[in-house]
Structure formats: C-alpha cells, structure tokens
Design a protein around this nucleic acid. Structure first.
Length: 423
RNA sequence: GGAGAGAUGGCAGAGUGGUCGAAUGCGGCGGUCUUGAAAACCGUUGUCCUUCACGGGACCGGGGGUUCGAAUCCCUCUCUCUCCGCCA
C-alpha cells in the first residue's frame, strides 16, 4: 500500500504512474487526500478533548489528596461531557481510518519509470533472449506424453487422490524434481542467501502483509476451521518474517531463500494452457527474497535477474527476459522481470520466474523499516523472485532434451540426480 | 484433549488505582581516563499520530468494560510456559 504522505507529495507522479497501469479510478487519489484531511482534523479534536480530560483528572486527584472532596466532586461533573465527546470522536476516527485504509488498499503500486506502457502480456518488452531454440523432429512429444511414456508423472493418479492439478511424481520424475530443488538451493547459498524452511500455512495478517489479501483471497486455499491459508508462494511467510521489524542499516542486504510447495486455486483457465505441468494447483518452487536499502534496491533487482539467468544458463535452456508492461504488472510491484523458457515440443514460452521490486509498497503494510544513518526510521524495500518454479522447468527439460535414446539430464544436474538419462 | 501459571521497553526484570512512558540490571550509543584496549566513572538510549515550531495525544500481548483517573480492577480473545493424556 502506498503511503498517504507519498501520495500527497507526488500526486501528479502517482496519477501518471497509475495511468500507465490502465488504472482509471483516479478520483480515488483525491478521496484519499480528503479522507486523510478529515482524519487529521478528527485526531486533533480528539487529542484536545483528551488533553483537557487528563488535566481535570490530575486536578481532581490533587484535590482529593488535600482533602477538598467537595471541590473535587464538582469538577467530576465537568468530565462527563468530555468523556462522551471523546467517545464519539474515537468512534468517528475509527470509521475514518477504516475508510482510508479501504481506499488505500485499492490503489496499486506506482510503476517504475522504465515500465513500458501496454495493456496485456502482448505488450511486454523482450529485453534479451539467450541460447538457441532446439530443432526437434516432427514426432517430438509434449512433456505430458513423455511423462507418461517414461512413467515420471501421473496426472490421473493425482486426480484420483486429490483432484485435477495435483500430479504425482514418480521414480526418476520425483528424483529429477528433488535434484532441481537442491540445485537451486545450493546455487542460492553460493550467492549468499540464507536458507529458510518456512511454515507452508499462514494467518490472515501475513496475507495482508505481502498483499495477497484483501484482493486476491480467491487465489489461496483457505482453511476455514482455523482461519489459515495455504501459501501460494514462499514469498508470503519469508517476507512476513520481517513484519513489524526495524532493521539496522548494516543489516542490508537481507537475503533469504526458501523452498516450498505452493498452492493456488487459479480458477478460470482451461484448455492447452493448463495441460500437463503448465498450470497446477500444487507445485514446487524455490524463492529468493531480499530486503534492501531504498538507494540500492534496483541494483539488487538486477543482481537477482542475473542470478536467475545463471541458473537457466547452467540448465542449458533457451530463455528470454521480459520487462512487464504497465497493464501486466502485478498489483504490488513497481518493476517486474519475467523469465520464460522455451518448451520446444509445445512450441511456446513458459514463465518460470517473476522477479520484482516492490519498493516500499509491501514494507508499508508490513511495517518493515530500518534506522538510517541519521537515526530516522524509514521504510525498507522488498524484492523477490522465483529461482525457480519447478514444473515448467521440468516440462522444458523433458521436451527440449528428448532423444531417441531417452531424455538427457543437463550436465549440471547429474551430481544431484545420480543418473544421466531417463529411458 | 484435561488442569494450572503467565504475557511490561533490544533483553532480563520491578511495578497491584493518581506523582508510571514506566525502577533496576544487561546490552547499544556518546564521553572521561588510556599509547591502544579492557575495567571504572559520567551522560544518553522505544514506537506512532499531530504541529512550521512550542506543545498535545496514543501505546505495558489484542479487543471491550469499571473509574474523575488503569500497566495496575473486571470480561473476552490470542499466544507462551508447566503438569497429565495422545502422538510423527
């Protein structure tokens, strides 16, 4: 959520930014400022009432102490009206604060200057492309057929046990998946990240902290009985570690990495987009999260993009980097790079990572701050990225590396898998 | 699941109706002393709202209540700990 002070001081910039996102309810900006004005006025009135009431209470106490009970009782009567007024003001203030919060929750982050204009994923900017797209023979199989042929993944079995979108990984399929997880974690450790195993279920406050609530509750599985949510990404628990935390400047950069299963309800998508591993209700992911000084967060974003590129290079997969356009940018993000790998049998690009700088947008909700050199408390910047999401990597490895002899495992993974070929 | 105890500043730990934003110790920061360091001594040390400022206000786990006045009394929720039961 944006800070009201930021909106006040940079109103034009905010409006321009929101336009780039095709966010058109711009009247909300003036509503926010107006509501905040009322909030301030009410707060001041309440403070004055309480100040007076405090003063009287002190006087009454002194009068009682010096035995002037009659005078004290006389004063007591004056406090009743003040008390009533204070209660009314308190209630009003509460309502106004809720209104303000509701308005602020509706405003997405202001995009970074470099975010291109655009309406949909069609308008995303391809920053670069690496590695050649493999030329497969005509009879090359898509990954779901390969998965069946070599008994790596059983989608029907998952549907039997749970439902569609919950595949069962078997044998070398399971081992390849585990190898990838370990590879990603080890690479993150080499890059200086601290490994975290977070809870896979979070409470409501955490959902609000990273911005999944209140607007995306439909995306998460909700355990009603305990009012908890299955995490859609490890970002949620790992970032919420720092909810209500004040860091020291030399704590930067905070670099955490965590593996987790991710659960997504993802209602409303059908057809070939969701075939096989392309879109699942449960999948595995290694997530990198950084918390950084505002002056350095964009350098950090680039560092994270480079880290992910390094992973894809080592896996020898063709990939490209996209800078998301305003229309495709996530609600909480200021700048996002998507990484896509080419899945050669499906002949399409698949998103395997999304790396974002949220600037202070999450930190504001999280109350994640740091003390700067002058001793002032300021909001930190949060960033995160997938490094990487497993299913589509798996899909692309299976498809791109298929040969008549079997599926070749990328060299870098062999120490992790313990086998070189799936046959 | 049953019984009991508790939640106070970065940490430890006092405080049971007014003088408490809160003793004391540790830690942190600044200083004196020292060639330097340690020790010792002195000072300082929470967050938030509001104000140009002076100032004012809120916060002792969350919410509500009693009272002129609540960290302190009452209700409620959450969490933690101890004992018993169950258990990977």
């Amino acid at each position: 959520m944006l800070q009201v002070s930021f909106i006040r001081e940079n109103k034009e910039q905010v409006i321009e930014g929101l336009k780039k996102r095709n966010f058109n309810e711009l009247e909300i900006i003036d509503q926010i400022i107006e509501t905040d004005n009322i909030r301030k006025k009410t707060q001041t009135q309440l403070d004055e009432t309480l100040a007076e009431s405090n003063k009287l209470a002190k006087q009454i106490g002194e009068l009682f102490k010096s035995g002037k009970a009659a005078e004290a009782n006389a004063l007591k009567e004056k406090t009743a009206a003040l008390k009533q007024q204070a209660n009314i003001l308190k209630q009003q203030l509460q309502e106004i604060e809720n209104q303000l919060l509701n308005l602020l929750y509706q405003v997405p982050n202001v995009p970074h200057q470099s975010v291109p204009a655009g309406n949909s994923d069609q308008d995303n900017e391809v920053v670069d492309t690496e590695n050649d797209i493999p030329q497969l023979p005509e009879d090359a199989l898509p990954h779901w057929e390969l998965a069946a042929k070599y008994n790596l993944i059983d989608f029907e079995l998952g549907a039997k046990i749970t439902g569609a979108g919950f595949p069962v990984y078997i044998g070398k399929g399971a081992r390849l998946q585990r190898a990838l997880i370990n590879f990603f974690l080890e690479e993150a450790l080499k890059a200086g990240y601290t490994e975290i195993i977070p809870p896979f279920v979070v409470n409501e406050a955490s959902g609000y902290g990273t911005g999944q609530l209140p607007d995306k509750e439909g995306q998460m599985y909700h355990i009603c009985e305990d009012d908890l949510y299955l995490i859609p990404t490890a970002e949620v628990p790992i970032t919420n570690i720092y909810r209500d935390v004040i860091l020291k400047e030399d704590d930067f950069p905070v670099k955490n990495v965590g593996y987790s299963p991710c659960f997504r309800r993802e209602a409303g998508s059908y057809g070939k987009d969701v075939r096989g591993l392309n879109r699942l209700h449960q999948f595995e992911k290694v997530e990198i999260v950084q918390i950084q000084h505002p002056d350095k967060s964009y350098d950090t974003l680039n560092e994270m993009v480079e880290h992910v590129k390094g992973l894809l290079r080592q896996l020898e997969l063709p990939f490209r980097t996209l800078r998301l356009c305003g229309g495709d940018l996530g609600f909480t993000s200021a700048l996002t790079y998507d990484m896509e790998v080419y899945s050669a049998a499906q002949k399409r690009w698949l998103e395997v990572s999304s790396i974002s700088n949220f600037e202070t947008f999450q930190a504001n909700r999280l109350k994640l701050r740091f003390k700067d050199k002058e001793g002032k408390t300021r909001l930190a910047h949060t960033l995160n990225g997938s490094a990487l999401a497993l299913p589509r990597i798996l899909a692309s490895i299976l498809e791109n590396n298929q040969t008549p002899e079997g599926i070749k495992i990328p060299k870098v993974l062999v120490p992790y898998t313990g086998f070189e070929l799936i046959d």
